[in-house]
Design a protein around this nucleic acid. Sequence first.
DNA 1: TACAAGTATTCTTATATAAGTTTCAACGAG
DNA 2: CTCGTTGAAACTTATATAAGAATACTTGTA
Lengths: 233, 233
Amino acid sequence: MTEPLYRMVYRKVIERIADGTYPPGAMLPNEFELAADLGVSQGTARKALSSLEDRAIVQRRQGKGTFVILRTPENSLFHFFRLRTKTGEQVTPEPHTETITKRKATAAERATLFENPSHVFEITRVRSFEGKPLCMEQSVVPSELFPGLMERAPLKNALYVMFQQAYSCIIISAEEHLHASLADGEMAEFMGIAEGTPVLVSERVTRDLLERTVEMRKGIFVTEDLTYFVEMN
Amino acid sequence: MTEPLYRMVYRKVIERIADGTYPPGAMLPNEFELAADLGVSQGTARKALSSLEDRAIVQRRQGKGTFVILRTPENSLFHFFRLRTKTGEQVTPEPHTETITKRKATAAERATLFENPSHVFEITRVRSFEGKPLCMEQSVVPSELFPGLMERAPLKNALYVMFQQAYSCIIISAEEHLHASLADGEMAEFMGIAEGTPVLVSERVTRDLLERTVEMRKGIFVTEDLTYFVEMN
DNA sequence: TACAAGTATTCTTATATAAGTTTCAACGAG
DNA sequence: CTCGTTGAAACTTATATAAGAATACTTGTA
């Protein structure tokens, strides 16, 4: 019933990462220091750090130390952009067009996003791969959580890297719902593909370190040459 | 350089599950017994059991014991059948038609499947949900690994449950490649849907406890009312 | 039914050794 | 003297053992 100590350590470390005590990429105190600091034994601190590593919140390297995960364009893309070539290779899409607007949140957005925001930023991007239009992504985030976002345009390829660097908001997990559909007229024109092309539609909610739902994203993918890759364990 | 002890314990337990020493659903010896048996300390055995639990190979319950995972139609479906309703509820499809044939393996199948089989069983099933055709699945398995499979028809809804119960073959992981497509004439007729309906196509390879690729599966899903659910961590 | 005893696991602490990484001073070759 | 190598020291995490306390579950008994 009561929370195990290692769980408490786990939470405390997450708190400290979230409040900037341990900034992105920073080295954490070693196991003994952390243990002494929180009044537990080294083994208990170790167990907490291990599960933080399992969740990809920190990285540990023998002989070096424990570091807060640093989102790079590479690992962010690898983790959250699931399109692969037919042979399984990673795809690096090139940004194409980008628009950012601020608008009122829809009822669904207000209900889902963190702190029931009244206003959101909507970031729409078309990306291409090897010259062909590849996907259209529309990302919706609470405006209060990302002040000054519009002034940062044009945004980098990897949104989540920017979220971490500029806002200390570390994206940890996401849920996606996929379905097959046909490109309608508007969509086709926007992306530069033929109307009626089969497309993979994804609707994602994204959560950060503090389990806050910080993004809703809709993606339209052209999967003529590519596939969406899923692992099940 | 040398294999850690806990890793050895991990392997030994997997071996014993695979060779039937610990059959599906069976209780393993407790941590102290297992440790004594393999000549390690209880903490080391514990570490191995924990990682087996992380991989969903065993289930542990404080006060009860450690048990070999038992695939039930429920958990198998939950884990490997990813279609959900728009509100996120689990879907239980009803089997519709089923055909099993034995045939020569294609070059791709021979290259991918365990032990480069010359012959395979091909299980084709159409399933429906709430009266509507939902999906067509074509599962290909090496015939040598599943002797007498054809005599078992009609197969149950959950193939992997039967693999475990009848052949002690425990499915642990799978990789899937998804893309959007249009139902062609043959496909449409077979499933009872309109030609040109957008469908989600999945190509899966499935691995068992011993990391053997024991199945290749192609699925065609009608995602008009349903979505394919993916979690990213 | 309620309670107590027994069993099994988890949680926590403690200690020791192994093994990677970095730093830096000492040393030798040129 | 300068440069590069060597090696020790100090740091880190990783592995392993041992042992006691707390918690969860089962079962026997009143």
